[in-house]
Write a protein that binds this DNA or RNA. Structure first.
Lengths: 336, 336
DNA sequence: TTGAAAGCGCTAACAT
DNA sequence: ATGTTAGCGCTTTCAA
């Protein structure tokens, strides 16, 4: 049984109010009483019951987030950034993991709402076409992170996905590749946007894209293996590509491996560029990669959330998208 | 403002009790009333206030965990396994991330206790010599995950770290390496245990370990770079090692890269074995690795926790350690 | 089958 | 400077 305010009050022959005041740093308590209370509080390891406090004050000082999974390079960085900003303001972030399942996403969202979180963040799966029902008529502010599905009208913080494609293409062009291939991810809205950005960047410079250079990763295989296989086929086309943009770092690693095995040199004969900027994959291969700005996304989302909580429905708040950024390593040449 | 039981009750001219009963599936309510209530509940998107319920019943159906960080290959798998087992029993897991900081570990532990979690899990940092104060006299069950610091007398679920070293050594021996080196991690209790296991495995077979083959990774560098540098020096010794056990997959990747660059073949001339079994690192390099059983650790810890919650202080529960397991890929040869 | 009363631990507002 | 009262939203208990 945890200690209650009342236990301390009875102990010291004081009222619960006095204890409560001391604990919250109210000033209308004598220094002596304060000292006695604090002493006993520490001795007994008293810890206030947040639920009871929240019930009374209507403030739980907690914010919920639902993420599809916990692994990978993106989510952990995002969540740590959110946690840090929230912590500074006395909020704590409650993470609910849905294990990639839409039903769990709904359950976790409801749980958060039942816990009276003051705001709810939702990290949208790349392949999601919709969001859980509970978010749609939530009584607390909701912020989406990642892409915003069509026709969903909630505040969101996302990435300019087309720029992932265009940034990669532009960099390869600057590094004197002219025959640029794209190894695209599975059919999701996000993957499509990246391809679009890629195509537009090439078109803007009047660089042709041959359709046999636009390869989709076989979804039966792991991304690495799929890219490994895919790139071999790609290299049999004539002319051969001299630069490859990949939809993920793992796919880029697959390309590097296969190319080296086949006797091509990276970056001299073929330049490679990945996406995700996962240090564990990029460092071993010296992969140039597109960073998806997880930390910055988290900070922006956190600040937006805090403003929403404070200022109810501030009309000045608008959804925003951030730009990805290029991180150059050795799988691309020095730009001219 | 969220909807309350009372709102629904007034709406339907019933008492809050009736609504409450319907929601909890009590049977002493007429079918008709039940239907009316459920209809309105859905229309209004009513969600019970978990805090208020918990205050009354003393059950929050939530369990807290504090982890040092969210990234890497171990924690996400652990947390997902815990989540899944708890979910089946109607508990939800609240994850608190300490960003690798001991002070935050204490804060997050206190927060969980303040939230009246029914049990508290704590994932011990590898370099931790102690655990947060709040865990030591917690009024709810505490389970440690990972290694248990000396003189801490709490239930724990951990890995037999020495077996990580011995399993690796034994496998290399079975694959006909005789000059086996060890690339050890930074000075932590866990790293020491692994080295111990490694040494003992060699000693048991009367295989000598030369001290220049026991290299510690330079902690100024990333693990990959440190291993890359370390292995080059190691290969200048005479005789040269023909097998290397690494304290992490990333270090193993560094070894592979450096060796290939220097013209050595893996696994023909030198066999490499990593630890962690992180798919993203192991697959590209075909790394044989020691799996740290994160998922199984999670399941065991979850079951232990549930029993602790139910059976108060069940004397039959004891700390346990699980064995790591070997995952063979292509950086080691076929055993003879 | 339905409902009234009391109280979980805490704090806002108001006495004393 | 300290204490009293009332009530947050819910459920246990018991009465109608």
């Amino acid at each position: 049984m945890p200690i209650r305010l009342r236990d301390i009050a009875q102990d010291l022959n004081l009222s619960t109010m006095t204890i409560s005041k001391v604990l919250r740093g109210q000033t209308d308590v004598s220094a002596e009483t304060k000292a006695r209370v604090m002493k006993r509080v520490r001795e007994l390891n008293y810890r206030p019951n947040i639920a009871a406090r929240g019930l009374r004050t209507g403030q739980t000082s907690s914010i919920g987030i639902v993420v599809p999974r916990l692994g990978g390079a993106f989510i952990p960085v995002l969540v740590e950034a959110l946690t840090e900003v929230f912590r500074r303001d006395g909020y704590s972030l409650i993470v609910g993991c849905a294990d990639g399942d839409a039903e769990n996403e709904e359950r976790e969202s409801e749980l958060h709402l039942s816990r009276q979180v003051e705001a709810l963040l939702f990290c949208v799966r790349e392949d999601a076409a919709d969001i859980p029902q509970p978010l749609k008529n939530s009584s607390v502010p909701v912020v989406l992170i990642g892409h915003r599905p069509a026709r969903i009208n909630l505040l969101s913080v996302g990435l300019r996905e087309e720029e992932v494609g265009s940034l990669a293409a532009t960099h390869l062009l600057a590094c004197r590749s002219r025959r640029i291939a794209y190894m695209r991810g599975r059919r999701t809205a996000v993957a499509d946007q990246r391809v679009t950005g890629f195509r537009e960047a090439l078109r803007d410079r009047n660089i042709p894209l041959r359709e046999e250079w636009l390869v989709e990763l076989d979804s039966e295989e792991s991304e690495f293996a799929a890219a490994y296989i895919g790139v071999r086929k790609m290299m049999q086309s004539a002319p051969r590509p001299d630069g490859i943009v990949c939809s993920s770092d793992l796919a880029a690693a697959g390309c590097c491996s296969a190319l080296q095995k086949a006797g091509f040199t990276v970056p001299e004969q073929v330049q490679i560029i990945g996406a995700g900027n996962s240090p564990e994959i990029c460092e071993p291969f010296g992969l140039t990669s597109i960073d998806l700005s997880a930390a910055e996304l988290g900070r922006r989302a956190a600040r937006m959330t805090l403003r929403l909580i404070r200022e109810a429905d501030d009309a000045s708040l608008r959804s925003m998208t951030l730009s990805p950024s290029l991180v150059v390593r050795t799988s691309t040449r020095a730009p001219s």
